[in-house]
C-alpha cells in the first residue's frame, strides 16, 4: 500500500477523510441551495414553461406581505417560549434523573417516547386531546377549573401557547438526554472540594454545575433553536395558521406559498430570508459557545 507516503498519507488525511462528506454535501445540499437562491430571482410557478427574471421583486413582495412579516414575529415568539421552557424543564428533569438506579435507567428510556412518534401524528394526537369540545385533556383542564374560553385552539390568545405545549412535550426529553450526558461527563473533584468547604447544594449547583454544564446547555440550545424555527407539523394539522394569523409561522407560510400555491419563486425568496435569519441566530448562539469555552480555557 502507498498509505504511508502517497495520497493516503497522514498529510493528506485532512482531505480524504473528509472528502466523501464534502462531495456528498456539494451534490445534494449545495445544489438545491444554490438553485433556491437562483430561483428566488424569478417569477415562476411550478408547471409553468417560462421563468421571468424579476430581480429582487420577490424579496420586496415578501416584506410587503403582512402574513410573512407577521409569521416572522410569531416564529420568534414560538421559539423563545418553546426553547426556553424546554431548557428549563429539561434541565430540571436531567438533574432529577441523574442517579444510577434501575428505575432511573428505565425512566431515561421511557421519557424518550415522545421523540419516537412522527411529529405529524403527535400533532394529530394533541388535536384530539385538546379538541375544544370532546378532547380528553380539555375535559380534565376544565374539570380542575382552568378557564380556557372556547378552547385552546379557538382563542386567539391561547392558540400559540397550545403549539408551544406540543413542542415542549415532544422535545423536552431530547434536551434532558443531552444534558444528562453532560452531567455524566462532569468531574467529581470540584464537588468534593466544595462540600469539604461546607458549600450548600444550591451553591454547588450555582457555582459548579451550571458553569460546567454551560457549553452543553448552549449546544442543546443551538440544536433546538434551529429545529424549533422550522415549526410546521402542529400548525399544519391543527390550526392551519389560525385563528386569524395567530399561529402562522414562517415555515408554514412558505409551505403554503410554495407547495400549495406552487409559487416557487416567491417561496424561495421567502425561505432564503428565513434561512439567512436562522443562520444569523445560530451563529449568534455558537459565538456564545466559543466565547464561553475560551473564557473557561476550553473546559468541558
Amino acid at each position: 500500500m502507498l498509505s504511508r507516503k502517497g495520497i493516503f498519507s497522514q498529510k493528506y488525511s485532512l482531505y480524504w477523510m473528509m472528502a466523501p462528506l464534502f462531495i456528498y454535501l456539494a451534490a445534494f445540499y449545495l445544489y438545491p441551495l444554490i438553485y433556491s437562491v437562483y430561483i428566488g430571482f424569478y417569477e415562476w410557478s411550478l408547471g409553468d414553461a417560462t421563468k421571468t427574471f424579476v430581480g429582487f421583486r420577490n424579496y420586496v413582495s415578501a416584506f410587503q406581505d403582512s402574513q410573512f412579516t407577521g409569521s416572522f414575529l410569531n416564529t420568534a415568539i414560538f421559539v423563545i417560549a418553546a426553547v426556553g421552557i424546554e431548557l428549563t424543564l429539561g434541565l430540571s428533569l436531567a438533574l432529577l434523573l441523574n442517579r444510577e438506579s434501575w428505575p432511573m435507567r428505565i425512566l431515561r428510556t421511557v421519557i424518550l417516547l415522545p421523540t419516537l412518534i412522527t411529529p405529524l401524528v403527535v400533532a394529530l394526537t394533541w388535536k384530539a386531546l385538546l379538541n375544544p369540545d370532546i378532547g380528553a385533556l380539555t375535559y380534565y383542564i376544565r374539570a380542575v377549573g382552568i378557564d380556557i374560553g372556547r378552547g385552546i385552539f379557538v382563542e386567539r390568545g391561547l392558540a400559540m401557547a397550545g403549539i408551544v405545549l406540543i413542542d415542549v412535550w415532544q422535545w423536552t426529553s431530547l434536551i434532558t438526554i443531552i444534558l444528562l450526558a453532560g452531567l455524566k461527563g462532569m468531574p467529581i473533584e470540584p464537588y468534593e472540594a466544595a462540600y469539604v468547604d461546607g458549600a450548600s447544594r444550591w451553591q454547588a449547583f450555582r457555582y459548579i454545575t451550571l458553569p460546567l454544564l454551560r457549553p452543553t446547555i448552549l449546544i442543546a440550545l443551538v440544536v433546538r433553536t434551529l429545529d424549533a424555527m422550522k415549526i410546521f407539523d402542529s400548525v399544519f394539522a391543527i390550526t392551519g395558521g389560525g385563528p386569524g394569523t395567530a399561529t402562522t409561522t414562517m415555515n408554514f407560510h412558505i409551505f403554503k406559498v410554495g407547495i400549495q400555491h406552487l409559487k416557487v419563486g416567491a417561496a424561495s425568496a421567502m425561505s432564503n430570508i428565513f434561512l439567512l435569519f436562522s443562520v444569523l441566530i445560530g451563529l449568534f448562539i455558537i459565538r456564545s459557545v466559543f466565547l464561553s469555552a475560551r473564557r473557561k480555557g476550553g473546559a468541558v
Binding site: N131, F153, P243
Partner: peptide, 8 residues
C-alpha cells in the same frame, strides 16, 4: 348555535 369549539 354551534358547539364552543367549532371555530377550530
Amino acid at each position: 348555535w354551534a358547539p364552543p369549539g367549532a371555530p377550530n
